[in-house]
């Protein structure tokens, strides 16, 4: 685990190389999606022209473009740029800032967001907001339990007042998962 983190940390200092790899990865992903499994395999075994016929998203011709045409054009460009960046990055010396990765921040902030998405329908606006704010607060190293609790209460009341009562967003205050506590309603 420590090795993995160390590797990530050092690779962050090779900007061009990393960005190049990210671009190539996205290009490959979009190409694979355009061609589908069969078409993508055919790309390597039968060549580009033949693979076009097997593509999941029809590519078509310039005159009658299919849904795959523009994406394929873009991924080609993206792949090319990725290759240039990788070539440049391999030769370059490590660069960039030595800031540590905010692992804690990423864990709690992204966690709070995903938690909100996963539970807002089931738990409802109030419990989800309260817990998500608690979670998000802990992204900061300076947070204390007391402050997090205060923030959570204040923000939940504010959100309830503005979004539920003020703007009337169609969100249940308590969701169906809590019906056993409050009764269906």
């Amino acid at each position: 685990m420590r090795d993995l983190r160390g590797l990530l940390q050092t690779s962050l200092h090779r900007h061009d190389l990393m960005v190049g790899l990210i671009f190539i990865a996205f290009a490959l992903y979009f190409v694979a999606q355009t061609f589908g499994v069969v078409g993508f395999a055919a790309l390597f075994t039968e060549g580009f022209e033949a693979a076009l016929l097997d593509a999941d998203l029809p590519v078509g011709t310039a005159r009658r473009m299919g849904p795959g045409f523009f994406p394929l054009l873009l991924t080609g460009l993206l792949f090319g740029l990725g290759v240039i960046l990788v070539a440049r990055g391999v030769r370059a010396t490590p660069d960039g800032n030595i800031q540590p990765m905010p692992w804690r921040g990423m864990l709690f902030i992204l966690g709070a967001t995903i938690f909100f998405g996963a539970t807002v329908r089931g738990l409802g606006l109030v419990p989800t907001t309260a817990i998500a704010v608690l979670l998000a607060s802990y992204a900061s190293q300076r947070m204390t339990l007391r402050l997090a609790a205060i923030l959570s209460v204040v923000l939940t009341i504010f959100v309830l007042a503005v979004f539920h009562y003020g703007l009337g967003l169609p969100l249940r205050v308590y969701g169906p998962w809590l019906d056993f506590l409050f009764g269906a309603g």
């Binding site: 902030i109 709070a112 967001t113 909100f116 998405g117 807002v120 606006l125 907001t129 998500a132 704010v133 998000a136 607060s137 992204a139 900061s140 300076r142 947070m143 402050l147 997090a148 923030l151 959570s152 923000l155 959100v159 979004f163 967003l169 969100l171």
Partner: peptide, 17 residues
């Protein structure tokens, strides 16, 4: 550290609604 939890809350509700 008082501000960003509020931003997260608004961002989440805003995106969902």
């Amino acid at each position: 550290y008082v501000l960003f939890p509020a931003i997260i809350a608004f961002a989440a509700i805003g995106s969902y609604s």
